[in-house]
Design a protein around this nucleic acid. Structure first.
Length: 672
RNA sequence: GCCACUGUAGCUCAGCAGGUAGAGCAGCUGAUUCGUAAUCAGCAGGUCGGGGGUUCAAAUCCCUCCAGUGGCUCCA
């Protein structure tokens, strides 16, 4: 999508942009950018100003179009349901939505609403802007508490703001908007969802209607087609077609069961990560899945994580918890003996399976299961080793993604603390009363905390450690020349983190890799090393995961390749079919020779016809289909069909050699 | 957890003005021995997500629980 182009056009003072555009022979603009500000084409500048016309084919124009489409949606809803109370309707990345306080709508009603929108678009109603005082605004929207809120929040007491009207419909809005509803003919309502007002679960539920709008029917149709194709890539669908995993919603809701095919894929990923870890000095360990609750209290997990943990009590009264994270286990190993400064960094890795009680509505396929395996790693460091370690992990991240996914579009985020909500994090507090430099930690609601010395509740949070850690992450990102956005409030409860996000087939963004600096857990567990002066010194922990979770990573992987994996990770690398039962023996030989060469071959010795076998295996997405018959048997060859349905006849040993090098090199595209 | 929608055979789906369940694929049996996306015939397969209610009669209507999906909140 192109951006609005620079344009030397100058709009004259005291006449509308529309007139200036018309004079310059420019048609079809929906807005203008004047001095960097988007404005309506019917606005009138008070002085001559350089402008760029905005067309719907550009990013900016499409946003205007979709914002206007959201208004059109609200208008249609109000005509059909006069009691509805619209809240807000912004454009989104590929469409728009409008949150409306109304009775939930079903599919049929959604179509009715869309029909009404189209009718209103056909009328080509003029969209006009009016400037109103706060008092008039409040009066105009007196029946709509959501708009009242917005007016109160956004308009100064003696101030003015704008409304946009089309026909009978009026909305409180800054604009800009398209000049008339005729621009909004290529629209489609997509789904109905719901949302809490102001994203607060204690506030009322609103109906959120999602839709999209395009400049013309052709691009709308293309979008809808792409969307359908994307839905076919859904990892849940492909996972079933390829028989990678199953869920048993009765016996273990939210827990993935790996079938042989799926486990093969997971093992390949594990092996990849194992060698990468070795190369970068991470030593593999294995830790228990269950711990006594003591450790969770000490680690600080209980304070924040308890509601998400699987907990149980044994007959002897002891309380246990299933691990939601691997860190305490690694801490237990690190703490087994004192460490010298010369031994650091100590870096443990583990494909560690964790269990989190996700609330029912939050689960979904492999992207959000209740059991998942983290390619977890914990580094125990000196202060001076943090930056170089972070940079090394970033290089591991880069290598992983480029090897496995080619060139995916990654987003780096720096997730930092929200200082307005200290109750969400482990923080150092200083006592204001006794002056004691109150040593550290533990969360839970701030008011429950008291000074360990004088029991005063007058505590002041000290963000120094958080700030230090955040600076280190920032510095590492800058030195690696990675562009990122900072997200306040997204930090882990024990420290700030770098996150990598990737989009799934349906455009939803998921966090995969993460690097987290943690000053607190070492304190909570009393971790130290012996420095060059034989004194105890504070250990810094780094939590990191590169895949993030194998499950979520596999979901992205499945959708990225639509199941057509690079051969090295493909569960079925070769599928062998004899032309008829007569050539079973030769087919079996080929199959066994492949197996002897550690190539994953599948051979179906049933009496089905060749055509049928090929048809049936297709959804399993084997990398190569090998057909053998009389010709092949005589010449010791195989007829190889690749994923582009190209056929090649090769000597069996040639085929095996090529295949082995394709697998060993972890080549993404097929070489045969 | 909240709101909405959905739940029929292993899979995809039909049946839903209430009259007691059907197709294709997969499976099994037999025939067929085949050159790159379905050979033919037969057989078998279902507590219609669970429970409760209304009714002479419930897959169909009502209530409730469970699960899945789309969002919200939360998170890898």
């Amino acid at each position: 999508m192109p951006k609005a182009e620079e344009n030397k056009l100058v709009a004259k003072a005291n006449r509308t942009f529309e007139e200036s555009l018309k004079e310059a022979g420019i048609k079809g603009a929906v807005a203008v950018i004047a001095d960097g500000v988007e404005m309506d084409i019917r606005d009138t500048p008070t002085a001559d100003v350089k402008i760029q016309p905005v067309f719907t084919e550009t990013t900016e124009g499409l946003k205007v179009l979709r914002h206007s489409a959201a208004h059109l949606l609200a208008e249609a809803v109000l005509e059909l349901y006069p009691d509805a109370r619209p809240n807000a309707g912004p454009p989104t990345e590929d469409g728009f939505y409008y949150d409306i306080d109304m009775k939930p709508v079903n599919q049929e009603e959604l179509e009715q609403i869309e029909g009404r929108m189209k009718a209103l678009a056909a009328k080509n109603l003029r969209i006009e802007k009016h400037r109103l005082s706060k008092k008039d605004l409040l009066e105009r929207f007196s029946h709509n508490p959501y708009k009242i809120d917005k007016i109160m929040d956004n308009v100064e007491d003696n101030g003015y703001s704008t409304v946009y009207s089309q026909g009978e419909f009026v909305d409180f809005c800054k604009g800009p908007h398209v000049p008339s509803t005729g621009f909004l003919r290529s629209i489609k309502l997509l789904t109905v969802a719901s949302t809490h007002y102001k994203a607060d679960e204690n506030r009322p539920m609103l109906v959120r209607i999602y839709g999209t709008a395009f400049p013309d029917d052709k691009s709308l149709k293309e979008f809808l087609h792409n969307r359908e194709e994307a839905m076919k890539r859904d990892h849940r669908k492909i996972g079933q077609e390829m028989d990678l995993l199953v869920f048993n919603s009765e016996w273990a809701p939210g827990f993935p069961f790996y079938t042989p095919n799926g486990f093969t894929l997971k093992q390949e990923l594990t092996n990849f990560m194992r060698s990468l870890n070795t190369l970068h000095g991470w030593q593999e360990v294995a830790t228990p899945h269950i711990f006594k609750d003591l450790i969770w209290k000490q680690s600080g997990h209980y304070a924040k994580y308890k509601p998400n943990m699987f907990l149980f009590t044994l007959p002897d009264g002891d309380n246990y918890g299933v691990k939601p994270m691997n860190c305490p286990g690694h801490v237990a190993i690190f703490a087994r003996e004192p460490k010298s400064y010369k031994e650091l960094p100590v870096k443990y890795s583990e494909p560690g399976t964790v269990y989190r009680y996700e609330k029912s509505g939050e689960m979904g396929g492999l992207t959000r299961p209740r059991m998942f395996t983290v390619d977890d790693g914990h580094a125990f460091l000196r202060l001076d080793q943090i930056i170089s370690e972070i940079k090394d992990i970033i290089s591991m991240i880069k290598e992983t993604y480029s090897t496995i996914l080619g060139e995916p579009s990654l987003t780096f985020d720096l997730s930092v603390i929200d200082k307005e909500a200290p109750e969400n994090y482990l923080i150092t507090y200083r006592c204001r009363d006794c002056g004691t430099e109150a040593e550290a930690r533990k969360t839970s609601m701030a008011e429950e905390l008291s000074c360990p010395n004088c029991s005063s509740r007058n505590l002041e949070p000290d963000f120094t450690t958080w700030d230090q850690a955040t600076d280190q992450l920032r510095q590492a990102l800058d030195e690696e020349e990675i562009s990122y956005t900072e997200n306040p409030g997204e930090a882990a409860f024990y420290g700030p983190k770098i996150d990598v996000h990737v989009r799934d087939a349906l455009g939803r963004s998921w966090q995969l890799s993460t690097i987290q600096v943690d000053f607190f857990m070492p304190t909570n567990f009393g971790l130290y090393y012996i420095n060059s002066e034989s004194k105890h010194d504070r250990v810094i922990m780094l939590h990191r995961a590169i895949f993030g979770s194998y499950e979520r990573f596999m979901a992205i992987l499945i959708e990225n390749y639509a199941g057509k994996f690079p051969t090295w990770m493909s569960p079925i690398q070769v599928y062998v079919v004899p032309v008829s039962e007569k050539f079973q023996d030769y087919a079996k030989n080929v199959h066994e020779e492949l197996l002897r060469n550690e190539i994953r071959s599948t051979f179906d010795n049933s009496q089905e016809t060749m055509n049928k076998k090929i048809k049936t295996i297709r959804p399993r997405r084997p990398s190569y289909i090998v057909v053998v018959g009389e010709k092949e048997e005589e010449s010791g060859t195989v007829s190889v069909r690749n994923r582009s349905n190209k056929q090649n006849v090769l000597k069996l040993d040639e085929f095996i050699a090529s295949l082995k090098s394709e697998i060993k090199g972890r080549v993404i595209d097929q070489t045969i």
